[in-house]
Structure formats: structure tokens, C-alpha cells
Simulated scan of single mutants.
Amino acid sequence: MIKITLVAGARPNFMKIAPILHAIQAEINKGSQLSFRLVHTGQHYDKKMSGDFFDQLNIPEPHTNLAAGGGTQAEQTAAVMIAFEKELLANRPDLVIVVGDVTSTLACSITAKKLCVDVAHVEGGIRSGDLTMPEEINRMVTDSISDHFFTTSEIANENLLQAGFAKEKIHYVGNTMIDTLLTNRSKFQKPKGEIFDVLEAKKYFVLTMHRPANVDQEGQLKAMIDAIIEGTNGMPIIFPVHPRTAKSLEKLGISYSNLHLVDPLAYLEFNYLVENAFAVITDSGGITEEASVMNVPCLTLRDNTERAETIHLGTNELVGTNPQNLAPYLQKLMRGEWKSYKGIPLWDGKTAVRIVDKIIDIYR
């Protein structure tokens, strides 16, 4: 029996683990000697940031919720580690699977390795090169102690090889978040609300911002939104507001007739908006992947990216965090000169099956 513990803690994790869970369950149904425990660390505890994803993506109820809650990076890391250690001592697996680059990824990988439990990192090897990002620290530390890497791109493979990791530990499988996207694309649903009823397909923007470089300094946030308003020719802008950003916007009193602030949206509703948008402006990594596969133009408000394949082969362009950089990209977009999706290898909806097949091959 191969015993697997899967860890999810924050909104991006749920999209990444759902297909892995479904692939494991499919193998169990076929008689494979697999078992799993799903651990929710409680890093995201708001229903819109967590609960809706379990419902919409058909994720089973977690076997346990560590209820780590909020706090500083250190407080959250410590809370997850303390609770996850108790979980592993009570239910020791053969393998812990962590995904992505959030606090829970780091905390659970360290805890598992200190108990001499193997760790597999799904989305291993991606790098932004920006050590001011907590996510980059999480990636680097998690990779440094992982036993196996399930990678999304040749770029990630090369990063790991250059860092000295053994080739046999690197398993190039694709992107589980795209598995989730392709599985659920036919189920996307228009959000409820007056503003969504009057939107015309391909005649509005979707905006997301949550990173400290964009939202923590009020002057920077105001300048960026002003630049977005100026360059979007009065088209509606739908802005699902991250809790961090909401606080800053409230202080600034920002108000434009075509800027529509809405609550965070569940997975099926948010991706309905993205699929039908004229373009997406974001500082998220995962959204650049989804927008690329759906062939929706994407402008990334960051100075670096750990997902360079979305620029080389996708619809993404790296605008930067200087609001003055935005105008030429928006002008190019408005002229209809944006690039199209070229196709990213192995982003085909079958990544989770490849992951589970490899795990069976390694541990049987």
C-alpha cells in the first residue's frame, strides 16, 4: 500500500491538487494499492478563498483541517508546522505531496523531511529570481529538500539541473492547474450581479492585484490604477478585490465610473470572466497560465516572472511595476496587435495522470 498525504492551504493549491486527487481515486477504483489523506492547512480560511473551491472542483472533504489561520509569515509557518507534525505522527505516509509556493508548501515540506518522510514538489523548479518575494523563498527551500520534482516546463527542468539536482528526481509532467482548467471549462458560469448582466463578451478587462509591490504603497496603487484607467479607453474593468487590496483602496477612496470593484469570485465564475474578457491585467502567476491557454491577452504588473513559458509561448507580457510602462502595451493591445497562444508542451489536461503513474512506478 502506497500511503500519500496531499497538502492544500491557499486558493491556488486547490486548483492544483484537485486533478491529482481525482487521478489517485481513479487508480484506487481500478484496484491499485493506494491510499491518501487530504490535509487542509487552513492558510486561507475565508469561504470565497477556500470553501467554494472544494465544492466547485469536486474536492472531497479534507481528512483534517489544521486551522492555521492568519498572522505574519513566521506565525503562519509555525502554526502549520506544529499542527502538521502532529498529523504526520498520527498518520505517517510514504510520501507527502506539496504544490505551488505558498506558506503551507514550505512549512509542510520542512516538517515532513524532519520526520524522514519523502516529499514531492508539484511545480518544482520554477524561479523568478526575486528574493523579495516570499514565494521565491518558499520555492527554493522546498526544492532544496524535496525527493521528487513534478515540473511544468523545460525551463523548470533546467533550473533544477543547474542547481545540481539529479536528473532521475525530475519528472516533467505538465501543469495540474491546466488539468483543472480544461476539465471545468465547459462548466464556467456567469457570476450573479447587475454588472455582470450588462457586460459584453470581449469588451471588458479583468484586473487583479494583490502583491505588496503594487498594493501596499498607496501612491503606487493609485498611480497604477490611474494608468490602467487612462489606457483602457473607458471599457469596463472588473476588479475582484483581494482582502489585502481592499484595505488600501478604501483609504484612497478610488472611484471611476468604469472601474467595478467586486468581491472575490469562485473558480467557475472567475474563469468565465477571464475567458470572455478583452484582456487581463494582473500580478498573479497562475492567471497568466490560465489566460494563455484560453488565448486571452495578459499584461503582468511585475518586474519578473517564474512562468517565462507564458511569455515565450503564451499570451503574457511582463509590463513591470512602473505605471508609466503600461501605456505602450495597452496601445498595442488596442491596435489588435497582441500575440496568440502557441501551445505549451504537456499542458494538455493529463498531467495528474502522469504524476500518479510516476508515483506508482517509484513506490510500488
Rank of each mutant, 00 (worst) to 15 (best):
V353Q: 11
N159S: 05
A23V: 06
S248A: 14
A68W: 00
D263K: 11
T142M: 06
D101L: 10
E136W: 09
E289N: 03
L6W: 03
V80L: 01
M133Q: 05
G343L: 13
L131A: 07
Y256V: 02
N13P: 00
K16C: 14
L21C: 07
N258G: 08
I126H: 07
A352H: 13
S186Q: 14
L115D: 03
L221T: 09
N258C: 13
S292A: 03
V280T: 02
V215E: 08
L57A: 10
L106S: 07
K251S: 11
K86P: 03
T232H: 04
R244D: 09
E87M: 06
G124C: 10
P345E: 09
T232E: 03
L6K: 00
S255D: 09
F196I: 03
F36V: 09
H312L: 13
T180P: 01
T310F: 11
S104K: 08
H22C: 01
H44A: 02
E158D: 14
S340K: 11
K86T: 13
N29I: 05
D348C: 04
G314A: 05
V141Q: 02
F239E: 07
N276L: 06
M133P: 00
E123W: 06
M81C: 06
P62D: 05
G320I: 08
A201L: 09
W338A: 09
